[in-house]
């Protein structure tokens, strides 16, 4: 299928980039002051030379950097991310525990940002330079300028502390023993504020792009052709303008996958969500370099997968792309 072919070709080009990331990050971490063993010793309150030597050998830190990089890449191919000294279990296991929360947060935020952006952007474009446009554009600008962690904190003050409508943090009420449907409801209640916090900045970006792109497409020749055919304005917007205007947005979603993952670091910290972003923060603070490398690898894979899906969607929307490639 040409559609899949296009997306697969794009997928291939991300392999060299992935390699650059892995090698780059590995080299970067060689400059880090102290390694995992130092961090471990700091936690244990020191140890004698023989213990340290043994630990270094155990974690494979006694070999040269090149050898270790070779080993590391070799293990990655087998999806072996190594062992986390801090958590005392394989990195893969630590990450898998944390991944679902982040995925849920990203998916719900992306959905909210996209839907909100398309609807509000379209509304603004249809009433361009009138008051609904001014209102929507102003709100969009404010959202764009608001630091997400601050918005999260303020949301917490209003909805959790003052109004008591929503929980102020965490993924679920652990002691409550909810099961089945009620557990889902509980998780959903916990996700409302984080989702809003993460989504609003993207919503404001999509809103602006959508508005601009609707306005631009409206001036194109084929819209005039449709008018000359006797098509009414509603049908022109829904059939001719909207789909063309969506194309630049779809491209952006691919680019934003990684930004969003970065943003979830902060949001997860604000709401004490046990996700990948918070894990990254903890790994930095505790100098758990194996875990950090593992997170880098998984994040990169995640972004590449999202981009693959976006390419599929793009090729589905735009017949021109299917045979041409870029």
């Amino acid at each position: 299928m040409p559609l899949l072919g296009f997306a697969l070709r794009r997928l291939l080009t991300s392999i060299p980039s992935l390699l650059i990331i892995l090698v780059g990050v590995f080299v970067l971490l060689q400059f880090a002051p102290g390694d995992t063993v130092d961090a471990l010793l700091a936690q244990m309150g020191g140890g004698d030379i023989a213990v340290i030597e043994n630990l270094r050998r155990f974690y494979g830190l006694d070999a040269s950097a090149t050898v270790r990089m070779g080993r590391y890449l070799l293990r990655l191919v087998q999806l072996d991310l190594g062992f986390s000294a801090i958590y005392g279990k394989p990195v893969a296991e630590v990450i898998v525990e944390r991944l679902p929360v982040t995925l849920l947060l990203m998916a719900s935020s992306l959905l909210l940002a996209l839907l909100g952006g398309i609807v509000l952007g379209t509304m603004a474009a249809r009433r361009v330079n009138k008051w609904p446009d001014a209102l929507i554009s102003t709100v969009g600008l404010l959202f764009y300028a608001t630091p997400s962690f601050w918005l999260g904190l303020m949301g917490m003050v209003v909805f959790a502390v003052k109004l008591g409508w929503l929980p102020s943090g965490g993924y679920e009420e652990l002691g409550a023993g909810h099961v089945g449907f009620w557990r889902l409801v509980d998780i959903a209640r916990h996700m409302v504020l984080p989702t809003l916090t993460l989504a609003l900045i993207f919503l404001s970006i999509y809103l602006r792009i959508m508005r601009a792109s609707m306005l631009e497409v409206s001036t194109m020749d084929f819209v005039q052709t449709a008018r000359a055919k006797g098509v009414d304005e509603t049908r022109i917007v829904t059939r001719h303008v909207l789909r063309n205007a969506l194309l630049p947005m779809v491209t952006l979603v691919g680019l934003h996958a990684s930004t969003m993952l970065g943003g979830s670091c902060v949001v997860e910290s604000v709401f004490t969500l046990p996700g990948l972003g918070r894990l990254a923060y903890e790994a930095v603070v505790q100098r758990d370099l194996n875990t950090l490398l593992g997170i880098v690898f998984i994040s990169a894979l995640l972004v590449i997968i999202v981009n693959f899906l976006v390419d599929l969607l793009y090729a589905r929307l735009d017949p021109r792309i299917r045979e041409k490639g870029r």
Partner: peptide
């Protein structure tokens, strides 16, 4: 650089 989340 774009694949790796910039905050990370």
């Amino acid at each position: 650089f774009q694949i790796l989340p910039n905050f990370l």
